[in-house]
C-alpha cells in the first residue's frame, strides 16, 4: 500500500472524562435515592421501639434485635387474630401455586393452538383475547363478583385461582403464541408427517424445546399473583386473605401503638418472594419483557 498508515496520536483518552464523571455521579445519586427507603426499612426493623422513638430514622441500630421479625411472622395482629403474617404467607402460596400452574398450562396450549393449528376465526379469537388485556381490571370486578356468586364459589380459594387464571390469559397467550410462531414451522410439519397428533406434538416436540418461555411465564405470573391485593381482598374470602392483604391489615391497624419495626419487617417479608425470584432469574426476567415487547 502506498498510503502511510495513520498512527494513533495525541494524548491517550482519559479513563474518566468529565462527562463520564457526571453520568456516574447522576447514577450514584439515583441509586442512593431509590435505596434509601429500603435502608430505612432494614435499619428500623432491627431496632427496638425505644430506639425508634428517638426519631433518628437514618441512624444504624445501636442494639440489633430480631424480635420485630419474629413478631411480624408469628404474632402480629390483624384485627382479632394475632397469628402473624405466616397465615397470609401460606394463603398466598395456596393461591399462587395452583394459579401459576393452571394459567400457564392453559395459556401454553392456547398459544400452541393459535400459532400451529389455525382454524377459521382464530385470528379474530386472538384479537379479542389481546383486547382483553387493554381493559382495566376495575371494569370487570363487579361482573366477575356476580359470576362467582352464581357459580357458588365466591369467597373461596377456587374463585381467586379462577380469577388469576382469567387475567393471566391475554398476556400469557400472546407470549406463548409468539414464541411458538417463531419456532421453525418445518418442525411441526415433520412431526405431523411422523404421525404425531395435537398433544404428542405439543408435549413431546414443542414444549421440551420451549423451556425459556415457560420460565418467563412462571416469573411473570409469580410476581404478578404474589403482588396482587385487589383480587385477593375481593374474591379470596377472609380466611384465605393473601399476604399482601394481611400486611395491609397489620400496618393499618388503628388500635394500640404503631410498631414501626414490626411493620417494616412485615413489609420486607412480603416483598421477599418476588425479590428472590427476580435475583435468581433476572436474565430470563429481562428476556421475558423483551419477548413480549418486540415480537408482539
Amino acid at each position: 500500500m502506498s498510503v502511510t498508515s495513520v498512527e494513533p496520536s495525541g494524548a491517550r483518552p482519559r479513563r474518566l472524562s468529565p462527562s463520564r464523571f457526571m453520568i456516574y455521579a447522576g447514577l450514584f445519586v439515583a441509586a442512593v435515592y431509590y435505596l434509601l427507603p429500603l435502608y430505612v426499612m432494614v435499619v428500623t426493623s432491627l431496632k427496638g421501639m425505644p430506639e425508634i422513638r428517638l426519631g433518628n430514622i437514618f441512624s444504624p441500630p445501636m442494639e440489633i434485635t430480631f424480635q420485630p421479625w419474629v413478631t411480624a411472622w408469628d404474632s402480629a395482629c390483624t384485627g382479632l387474630y394475632c397469628e402473624g403474617l405466616k397465615v397470609g404467607f401460606w394463603n398466598s402460596m395456596k393461591i399462587l401455586i395452583p394459579s401459576v400452574i393452571v394459567s400457564i398450562a392453559i395459556a401454553s396450549v392456547n398459544g400452541y393452538a393459535l400459532s400451529n393449528w389455525k382454524f377459521k376465526g382464530s385470528e379474530v379469537f386472538f384479537t379479542i383475547l389481546i383486547i382483553g388485556s387493554f381493559i382495566p381490571y376495575q371494569v370487570m370486578l363487579y361482573p366477575l363478583v356476580i359470576i362467582m356468586r352464581e357459580l357458588g364459589i365466591f369467597g373461596t380459594l377456587t374463585a381467586i385461582i379462577v380469577v388469576h387464571t382469567i387475567f393471566g390469559m391475554p398476556i400469557l397467550t400472546l407470549l406463548f403464541r409468539n414464541y411458538f410462531a417463531a419456532l421453525p414451522v418445518e418442525l411441526f410439519k415433520a412431526a405431523r408427517v411422523d404421525g404425531a397428533g395435537f398433544w404428542q406434538i405439543f408435549l413431546q416436540v414443542l414444549a421440551p424445546m420451549s423451556l425459556p418461555i415457560f420460565v418467563v411465564a412462571v416469573i411473570l405470573q409469580v410476581t404478578g399473583i404474589w403482588n396482587d391485593f385487589l383480587f385477593g381482598v375481593i374474591f379470596a374470602g377472609t380466611e384465605n386473605y393473601p399476604m399482601t392483604v394481611q400486611l395491609n391489615n397489620i400496618v393499618n391497624a388503628t388500635q394500640g401503638v404503631k410498631e414501626y419495626n414490626v411493620n417494616m419487617a412485615a413489609t420486607i417479608l412480603t416483598g421477599a418472594v418476588p425479590l428472590i425470584i427476580y435475583f435468581l432469574s433476572g436474565r430470563y426476567f429481562v428476556r421475558g419483557i423483551a419477548a413480549g415487547a418486540v415480537k408482539g
Binding site: 418445518e186 410439519k189 415433520a190 412431526a191 408427517v193 411422523d194 404421525g195 413431546q204 416436540v205 424445546m209
Partner: peptide, 29 residues
C-alpha cells in the same frame, strides 16, 4: 392425514427435534 399417506418428507432446515438424540429422532414416528 399426512401419516396415513405412506409418505416421508425431508425438509430444507432438516427439522430435527433438537432435544432428542439421533436415535430418538429416527424412532419418533
Amino acid at each position: 392425514e399426512p401419516k396415513d399417506r405412506g409418505i416421508g418428507m425431508v425438509f430444507q432446515s432438516y427439522a430435527l427435534y433438537p432435544q432428542m438424540t439421533v436415535e430418538r429422532n429416527l424412532s419418533f414416528g
